[in-house]
Design a binder for these strands. Structure first.
Length: 509
RNA sequence: GGGUCGUUAGCUCAGUCGGUAGAGCAGCGGGCUUUUAACCCGUUGGUCCUGGGUUCGAGCCCCAGACGGCCCA
């Protein structure tokens, strides 16, 4: 803690001490009767004369954001969850003692309640002329600069509450996020999908090719893995007869941090029996359009300098077609492992000897095509080699009935007709296990319990996962995932927080 | 893991050629009864991220480290 800060805090502590002595430190009796937004909506259009004649009462509460003291009268700007409202405090209205109190004891950042009547200032701003003003919670720490807000990215993430207090844009991102989550629930609930919760701690990690976090269950004396995906559990439920299920919650992957990756992130996965991957592409396209409508957004959105149009039918392109076009080779050469190896080498893509043609094609796709898929595009025909849970295509068993949706160079969704042949699934797991034995840390484990579930019979099914964080990024024009996560993962600062000594937290669980 | 850029007052930011550290806001004192990023006068406040090094002298140059941004693996 620096001397300068402790000086500000010391001043504020003195005021708090005085409030404590008077027994007025943290009262909890004030009741808000109005939100700023409602007052502005209902009375903002009224004229100064109309309001002056009516004497409409109001009681608001919020954080003091701005303060303008002019001798024996002052204006303060209160922020509540709905917006901001100005209050006018006059010595003649609230009394000399209360007014002195306001001047001596209140600071920007304090939580206060104001009761009074509505008025319009000479400049036409709706204002509450106070008859009573109460300090409800003293802020000991000063707020960031009132005009620029909190700009330091690190502080914005580490002390998100300050970011939320100061930056309207940041608040709006998380409101949009909540609206997206709520809308998705409405969408699937309306289509008779059952929302379920499956384990986050898995005895065998599965459902995606990714490194898991490991944790320890003491009394079971066993390792458990934080889930990398809920997929295998959701399909067990389809076996059980819940033919339409969805789960929207956290997944965990033990990977590096980047503008697009956080170790914990949110997905919605949904499964629908008696549907295939083409049905899901239709559903996804409709879902996105419907979502934009629900959010009262245009079908064309701005993201990272691009205008992205969801109003058009989303094109579907086979991976081989997209790759062949991007790098200027014949499509037929993309089935041949030796030729793919040459192509990858020529493109300076790092490859491994164990990879077959499917993995090679996928790597070339990721290196040369993905980032250029700006407008919404379904890529289909994913190689079976990189799709261990997907149903093989009837015409070409080397590929699967799978798609991924790309927008602005980012994977947004991944869906496929589910592999419900237990013997093929067992073979795919064996191939993954072999890769794992060769040192591929991302490869899947053999999940015998899941194979057994398939042996009881899973109806033909299609399933899909959509990355909520990435979807919200698109809809809020955020290019880093940290901006759509309230508390993104950062390296912990050991000694003390950047601003002050570490706050003592009481657990409430 | 590698490269690169950044870290200066509580916050937002300047800081020249290496010559003893600045502004605005916030704070403190004073003035002001329709201001609005209020204004006017005065004023406090610095581990220049940390630790070494070079130098008569380092916010600035060199080395190492911490944290963060971006790019690559």
């Amino acid at each position: 803690m620096t001397e300068a800060e402790s000086e500000i805090v010391t001043h504020r502590r003195r005021k708090l001490d005085a409030l404590r002595e008077r027994g007025e430190a943290y009262p909890n009796g004030f009741r808000r009767r109005h939100l700023a937004k409602d007052l502005l909506a209902n009375y903002g259009p009224a004229s100064k004369q109309e309001l002056g004649a009516q004497a409409i009462g109001a009681a608001v509460a919020g954080r003091v954001m701005l303060r303008r003291v002019m001798g024996k009268a002052s204006f303060i700007t209160l922020a509540d969850p709905s917006g901001r409202i100005q209050c006018y405090l006059r010595q003649d209205d609230i009394g000399a003692d209360a007014y002195e109190d306001f001047k001596d004891m209140w600071d920007i950042g304090d939580i206060a309640g104001v009761v009074g009547t509505l008025m319009k200032t000479n400049k036409g701003e709706l204002t509450i002329q106070a008859s009573e003003a109460r300090l409800l919670a003293k802020a000991l720490q000063p707020l960031p600069e009132k005009y620029h807000g909190l700009a330091d990215q690190q502080l914005r993430y580490r002390q998100r509450y300050l970011d939320l207090v100061m930056n309207e844009q940041s608040r709006n991102v998380f409101r949009t996020r909540a609206a997206v989550v709520a809308a998705l629930r409405r969408f699937f609930d309306a289509r008779d999908f059952l929302e379920v919760e499956t384990p986050m701690m898995h005895p065998v990690p599965g459902g995606a090719t990714a490194r898991p976090f490991v944790t320890r269950h003491n009394s079971l004396d066993t390792d458990l893995y934080l889930r990398v995906a809920p997929e295998l559990y959701l399909k067990r439920l389809v076996v059980g007869g819940f033919e339409r299920v969805y789960e929207m919650n956290r997944c965990f992957r033990n990977e590096g941090l980047s503008p697009r990756h956080n170790p914990e992130f949110t997905t919605i996965e949904f499964y629908q029996a008696f549907a295939d991957y083409e049905d899901l592409m239709v559903l996804t396209e409709g879902l996105l359009r419907w979502l934009l409508t629900e959010l009262e957004m245009e079908q064309t959105i701005s993201f990272d300098g691009h205008e992205i149009d969801f109003g058009q039918p989303i094109p579907r392109r086979a991976m081989t077609v997209a790759v062949a076009e991007a790098i200027g080779v014949e499509e037929k050469d993309l089935k041949d492992a030796a030729k793919l190896r040459n192509i990858a080498g020529g493109l300076n893509i790092a490859i491994e000897d164990s990879w077959g043609s499917g993995r090679l094609l996928m790597e070339i796709f990721e290196a040369r095509v993905e980032e250029n898929l700006i407008q919404p595009t379904f890529i289909t025909g994913y190689p079976a080699e990189v799709s261990p849970l997907s149903r093989r295509n009837d015409e070409d068993p080397s590929i699967t009935d799978r798609f991924e949706l790309f927008v602005a160079g980012r994977e947004i969704a991944n869906g496929f007709s589910e592999l419900n042949d237990p013997d093929d699934q067992a073979a795919r797991f064996r191939a993954q296990a072999a890769l794992k034995n060769q040192g591929d840390l991302d490869a899947m484990h053999y999940d015998q319990d899941y194979v057994t579930a398939l042996e009881y019979g899973m109806p033909p099914t299609a399933g899909e996962g959509i990355g909520i964080d990435r979807l919200v990024m698109l809809l809020t024009n955020c290019t880093t995932i940290r901006d759509v996560l309230l508390f993104p993962q950062l390296r912990s600062v050991p000694q003390s927080s950047p601003r002050q000594g570490s706050p003592r937290q009481e657990s409430r669980s």
